[in-house]
Every structure is written in structure tokens, then in C-alpha cells.
Nucleic acid binder design. Structure first.
Length: 397
DNA sequence: GTACCTTTGAAGTCC
DNA sequence: GGACTTCAAAGGTAC
């Protein structure tokens, strides 16, 4: 996928999608000729989303379900209009003096030299956003200079362009104020950069999932309290990370017991033990955008259904300029970088359901059913032995 | 109680 | 290398 990592600011990654988005009207013309194509159904959904944006009705989602047939021919011009409106809205978001509801602003900036709750990290800054400060800079744990034309601390090859080089771990210490000894020496009290990415929302009508009475809890809005209280929730480095979540709910259920296999006593015993926290994937650019804009869309459209909201956000994402998208690509890139720094052995594969489904150790067990490999690097002979054993397991299954 | 929906992007897997 | 799959967030909905 296109990323900033290619080094050029022009390669922001949304080209294809943006082109497809612009061609949407042509497709809809074809749809009028073939009323029962699959594209028609997809277009219907988009039209319904448009309607939700226009009507801003809290019942729009319900209406969508109930009257899909009636709304099949929703005028295309409304979509074009909405695209313009949404573009205007999104474009204006960076110009708005106040930045209400911008969730990232409420948290300390761990990567600024003075990372204590600062002007850019408390609620006051929310309404002082625009004064010589890029609105997104506050969202960043990386400081305002991130969007400045020539960040002083950036490597020379990154200064004048948004280009990114993938391997710049040496830069992270400057970016994230990491101690020279590496992440393992980061004080546990330091706010995790993701807090600014997954924060509590401002009290001005936005959701605030956890009590703000507890200072520590408010600083870890994305963490369940159990995660914050227990050392088991900590990363080995001692750093609480928003990507670390206890395997509760859906994931826990899917990963530890799906009824796929009978539980031996060992399994039952394992369940009594504290569950290992799951390291989540770092958020990509669009996910970061959604996190930021969801509350705004909810407020504007009075929608609550995430599926419909995400459709709107997807359209708005395409409506963003490349420069606007670049900010989120850059954020996502830093998220991935820090994630890699903190969890060098972690792989997205670790969270694949298949391994946990069969009760396999993420680090050592060979996943026979799906053939995905363990995280460790095995001796070739060991690998062959595991391969053979996995085939036997597969045959027995 | 939990899967599903819906979006885009990153990463992994497969052929 | 391209196609495909999975998972990140979110919360209402359906079963």
C-alpha cells in the first residue's frame, strides 16, 4: 500500500482510492441501466449513507434497513453536493479555531521535551489550538514541530518533505524522547504516546468512557481499569501501551475458547490464571482519522450506528486532500515505528485467531491447521521436525 | 452474550 | 508479485 515511507511526499497512498471515488458518478450512470447489479446494491448503500448525512436523522439507519427499495434511485447530485460539503467540512476542520472534541489534546505529550501536561496537552489547549500551532500537532505525541516545515530535530532527509524512511530507529529517541538506553528505560509514569491517539474525549458532549476522577485512569483512557492496576497488563518494558489490551470480550472468547476443542484440565487451569494481554495492531491512517472524526460525525449526523458512520468517514477520507491525508499517514507511520520499538518480536500474525483457536503457543507452537509459523526462529532441523509433526496433527484433525 | 456490519490500510499468507 | 485474508476501532443491531 502506498505510504509515506517511500520518501516522497507525493506518495501518500490514496491515489487509487481517490480516483475511484471520483469515478463513482460514472458508475452510477451505468447503474441506472442495470438496476439489479451488485454495484447497484453498493451504490444503494452509499446513497443511503448520503441520505443520512443530509437528513441527519437519528433514525436514518433504521430507515435504511426498512426502505432500501424505495431509495434505490437516490439522486446522484446529492452525493456530489455532499462530497463538496464533506470536503468543506473536513477541510475546515484544520482551520477551525476551536478544536472541540479533539480527543488527543487532553493528554500529556510524552514526546515533547517537557512532557508534563502542557499547553498542548490539557483541555485549555483545545480552544487555543490554532494560535500558531497546527491543529493536528496537539493530537500528536510527537510535538508541534512534526508539521512544521523543517522540524529542527528531524533527520536532514526528512526535513523539507513528508518523506519517510522506514528504518530510523535512531531518530525515535529524538522523536519520542526515549532515553538513550532504549524503551526499556522509559519511566512507567510516562504517558504512552498512544494516549494521545486513543484518548478520552472531551467533556463537551463527547464520550468519556472512564472516570476522570482517577488521575491515572484518565491518563490511560483506552485501558480498562484492570489493565492499569495490574502489572500483568504492562508491557515487559513497564510501559502501558494502548495496543495492549486484556483478552476480554470477543477476542478473549475467540482466542481462548470457541468450543472448537474440548478443554483439558490444563486448559481449565489456564483460564484461571491471568490472561495475557493482547498486543493490538497499531492503527493505520484511516483508523486514526476515524478516531478523530467519529465524534464529529456523530454530532453532525446524529448517527450512532458505526457501520453508517464508517461509511461516511470513508467518503470523507477520500474527500480529504493529499496533504490532509498525509498527516494521518505520518501519524500512522510513527505509530508503527513506536510499536516496532516496543514490541520488536510482535507480529500481526500473533493476533490471528487460528493459532489461539487451537490453543497454540504464539511463540513456539507450529500451527498445523493453518500452517502459520511460530514467532521464534527455529533451527532448520527443528523446523523440519515441527513440520512433520504438524502434518501428523493435520492428518489427525 | 456475541457475531455482524462498515470503512481503509497494514501486514501476513498463498500460489 | 499479485491476489487474498485478517485485524485494527466503533457501537448499534440481530440472533
Amino acid at each position: 500500500m502506498p505510504q509515506l515511507s517511500s520518501g516522497g511526499g507525493d506518495d501518500l497512498g490514496a491515489n487509487d482510492e481517490m480516483i475511484a471515488f471520483k469515478d463513482e458518478g460514472e458508475q452510477e450512470e451505468k447503474i441506472q441501466e442495470n438496476a439489479f447489479t451488485e454495484r447497484d446494491l453498493a451504490d444503494l448503500k452509499s446513497s443511503l449513507v448520503n441520505e443520512s448525512e443530509i437528513n441527519q436523522s437519528p433514525n436514518a439507519a433504521a430507515v435504511r434497513r426498512g426502505h432500501q427499495g424505495e431509495q434505490r434511485g437516490f439522486p446522484e447530485k446529492h452525493r456530489e453536493h455532499l462530497d463538496g460539503v464533506s470536503k468543506q467540512q473536513d477541510g475546515g476542520m484544520y482551520k477551525t479555531p476551536g478544536y472541540p472534541g479533539y480527543p488527543f489534546l487532553m493528554l500529556p505529550d510524552p514526546y515533547l521535551p517537557n512532557s508534563s501536561p502542557s499547553v498542548s496537552s490539557n483541555k485549555v489547549s483545545v480552544v487555543q489550538q490554532s494560535h500558531g500551532m497546527h491543529p493536528l500537532s496537539s493530537l500528536l505525541p510527537y510535538g508541534n514541530e512534526h508539521f512544521s516545515p523543517s522540524p529542527p530535530h528531524l533527520p536532514t532527509d526528512m526535513s523539507q518533505k513528508t518523506g519517510v524512511h522506514r528504518h530510523q530507529s535512531q531518530d525515535l529517541s529524538g522523536y519520542y524522547s526515549l532515553p538513550p538506553g532504549g524503551v526499556s528505560q522509559i519511566s512507567p509514569s510516562m504517558s504512552w504516546q498512544g494516549q494521545t491517539v486513543y484518548p478520552a474525549l472531551s467533556p463537551c458532549g463527547f464520550r468519556q468512557p472512564y472516570s476522570s476522577n482517577l488521575p491515572s485512569a484518565s491518563s490511560y483512557s483506552r485501558f480498562p481499569h484492570s489493565l492499569m492496576l495490574g502489572p500483568s497488563s504492562m508491557h515487559p518494558t513497564g510501559i502501558p501501551h494502548p495496543a495492549i489490551v486484556p483478552p476480554t470480550g470477543k477476542q478473549e472468547h475467540e482466542q481462548y475458547d470457541r468450543g472448537m476443542y474440548a478443554k483439558p484440565q490444563v486448559e481449565a487451569k489456564r483460564e484461571k490464571e491471568p490472561k495475557k494481554p493482547v498486543i493490538k495492531k497499531p492503527l493505520n491512517a484511516f483508523m486514526l482519522y476515524m478516531k478523530e472524526m467519529r465524534a464529529k460525525v456523530i454530532a453532525e449526523c446524529t448517527l450512532k450506528e458505526s457501520a453508517a458512520i464508517n461509511q461516511i468517514l470513508g467518503r470523507r477520507w477520500h474527500a480529504l486532500t493529499r496533504e490532509e491525508q498525509a498527516k494521518y499517514y505520518e501519524l500512522a507511520r510513527k505509530e508503527r515505528q513506536l510499536h516496532m520499538q516496543l514490541y520488536p518480536t510482535w507480529s500481526a500474525r500473533d493476533n490471528y485467531k487460528c493459532r489461539a483457536r487451537f490453543g497454540l503457543n504464539q511463540q513456539t507452537d507450529w500451527c498445523g491447521p493453518c500452517r502459520c509459523v511460530p514467532n521464534i526462529h527455529l533451527h532448520p532441523l527443528h523446523s523440519i521436525a515441527l513440520l512433520l509433526s504438524s502434518k501428523l496433527i493435520s492428518a489427525s484433525i
